[in-house]
Amino acid sequence: MLLEVKNLHANVAGKEVLRGINFEVRPGEVHAIMGPNGSGKSTFASVLAGNPKFEVTAGEVLYDGVDLLSLPIEERARQGLFLGFQYPVEIPGVSMASFMKAAVAERRKALGLEPLSSAEFLKLVREKSKIVELDGKLVSRSVNEGFSGGEKKKNEIFQMAMLEPRLAVLDETDSGLDIDALRIVATGVQRLRTPQNATVVITHYQRLLDYIIPDFVHVLYKGQIIYSGDKTLALKLEREGYDWLIGSQQ
């Protein structure tokens, strides 16, 4: 098992937003998490990543058998947990290149690999930016600064490609993308799939799942996973909305 989440509860600003999540991911799987706005999807992703804004009040998360919640943010990342942000952060003055160079070095160190030479690093950048057709010029700019909404999302997947995570949690990576960009990004993610890694995509739209075919689709509502199914669930949700599920909850 790559990820085991048991009865996870979390608060933000004194309010309970995760209310007992149970969730399992095996290597090679793709999971989709859907659910109405404000149901706790981003919170769940943030808690996995270790965002200090959220306080875990109960439950357990095992990542590759290790207690994930006891690891600092960066250690989780180095061990191969990647969060694609719903709202990527702009960092003025910090170049993508220097940021990624440091990030790749840390990831490689955790894998017991030597740091890349400058030439090797540049080669990797070229190779990986092709996967998401990211404009090479963006890599020489400051992190996300002045990037368009779509460019920011592409940039997240570019970083994912650079870091080769074992578990990628992509929070609404499809929102804000035009039709072509969506196809590019989604096929990019699809190409990064291996039997060893796994992907959790948080999305509102079935469209993305045409490219990234999920093994499981879950519905998160009011801080709990209230329903799980296969890829046909996404189609049903697209047609019928959440009412039929939420109704049975109340």
Binding site: I73, E74, V89, F99, M100, E106, L163
Partner: peptide, 8 residues
Amino acid sequence: YYMRQRGL
């Protein structure tokens, strides 16, 4: 936080 999430 963003940079730490990338391993720094």
